[in-house]
Each structure stands twice: as C-alpha cells, then as structure tokens.
Amino acid sequence: MKSFLSTFIATLVINSDLYAAEAGMPQLDPKYWASQAFWLIVVFAVLYISISKFYLPKIKNNLDNRENKIKEDVDYANKFKEQSESKIKEYEVIIEKAKKEVAKIILQSKNNLDKDIQSKKESLEKEIEKEISKAHSEISEMKKNSISSIQNLSENITSTIIQSISGDKLNESSIKATVEDVTRKNVSRYL
C-alpha cells in the first residue's frame, strides 16, 4: 500500500513537471504567424477557386437536373391523369347513351309484344267463339233431330205397348197425334 501511494505521488509529480514544461500557449508565439497566414491564404484561395469553379456548378447542375426531371415526370403524370379523366367522362357519356337506348329498346319490344299478344289473343278468341257457336248450332240441331227420333221411338213404343196390353192395333195417326201433343207440352222442359 505504501509503495503504491509513493509511486502514485511520484507519477503525479513527474506529470506535473511535464505540464510545467509544456506550459504557455504556442499559439501566441509569433514565429510562424506569417507562415500560417501565408499558407492559409494560399490553401484557401486554391480551395475557393476549385470549389466555386468546378464542384459547386457540378452539384448545382445535378440538383437542377433532378428537380427538372421530377417536375417533368410530375407534369407527365398530370397530363396522363387529365387524359384518363376525360376518357372516363367520355365512357360515362357513352354508357349513359347506351342505357337510354337500352331502355328505349326494352320499351319498344314490350309494346310490340303487347300488341302481338293482343292481336293473337283476339284472333284466338274469335276462333274460339266461332267454334262455340258452331258447337251450339250443332247441339241445337242434334237436339231437334233427337226430338223427332224420340217422337218416332215413343210412337213405336206406345203402339207396341198398347198392342201387347190390349191386343189391338191402334190407329197409327191417332197415336202420333197424342205423342206429338204430349211432346209439345213437355219438350220445353228438356230443350
């Protein structure tokens, strides 16, 4: 411990001796002032001339180039944007037109279809009516026919029944008259 302390103190003393030897500011020694001023002026002049003549214009050029390029690109982009916007507008107009046309066509075809359906329906109805009236007339004819055939049948049946009951043959014309009479009275119930 003692030896450590003594060496420590010794080093401090030696160091302070060193500091003492170096004391004073070399900056205030005028011996090389002229030299420093001279070389400063020379070096700085060379530096200034080469910077201002060569390097700054180059760097400025580079920066300007970049700025111009960016501006150009932005201009291009804006142009394209405008173009695309006008194209979009055109498309919108076209689509609008097409929509209108489509609506027109739809309306027209609907009308046509309606007319067509109407006319077809009418003709069909007419035909159906025709058929119905034909059928009606046929039916009424058949009914009329059936009445006369029924009369005949009933005359025959009546004469046969009378003959088998009484054994006599009755006058055909009187039977016919009676049947006709009955028929006339009752035929309205069936027709």
Partner: peptide, 9 residues
C-alpha cells in the same frame, strides 16, 4: 519573412 511549410500548413 519566414514562410516555411509547417505542420499547420
């Protein structure tokens, strides 16, 4: 005038 080239220069 001493204009020698020094370490500063």
């Amino acid at each position: 005038i001493d204009l020698s080239f020094t370490n500063a220069s």
